[in-house]
């Protein structure tokens, strides 16, 4: 079984952990200011990269604390773990994996299908 390095407890078996999806997704500062398109981006749209991915994990059967990890989605290798609030550490040989998807920061217009 794969071992995951909890920043507080050290290396533990994967089955002790709970997955939380993409990291660094900020809750909208003013939700009422968002239109449907922006709200949809916040609720339903997450990055899905093939390669390094900054994501949230919880040590559910251990210290029960959340942390972030940079993990390769092809090899499943953990490139780095870091505490919530810290920026993702740079990993040599990879592009920056942080993705900010806070609505309003980078609104993407016109992506709705026309059908």
């Amino acid at each position: 079984m794969q071992l995951i390095e909890c920043p507080w407890c050290g290396a533990r078996e994967e089955a002790e952990f709970h997955y939380g999806g993409q990291a660094h997704v900020a809750h909208p500062e003013d939700p009422h200011a968002l239109d449907d398109e922006q709200w949809a981006r916040y609720v339903f749209f997450r990055d899905n990269p093939k390669g390094p991915f900054a994501e949230r994990w919880a040590h559910a059967a251990g210290c029960r604390r959340w942390f972030n990890a940079l993990r390769d989605t092809v090899t499943h290798e953990f490139l780095a773990v870091y505490r919530v609030g810290d920026p993702p550490p740079p990993v040599p040989g990879t592009a920056p994996a942080t993705h900010r998807t806070a609505p309003g920061a980078q609104p993407r217009q016109g992506q709705e299908a026309t059908s």
Partner: peptide
């Protein structure tokens, strides 16, 4: 498997 993955393999548990 709970996590995102493109590797066409999963965890034993």
């Amino acid at each position: 498997d709970s996590y995102n993955g493109y590797g066409q393999r999963g965890a034993f548990h």
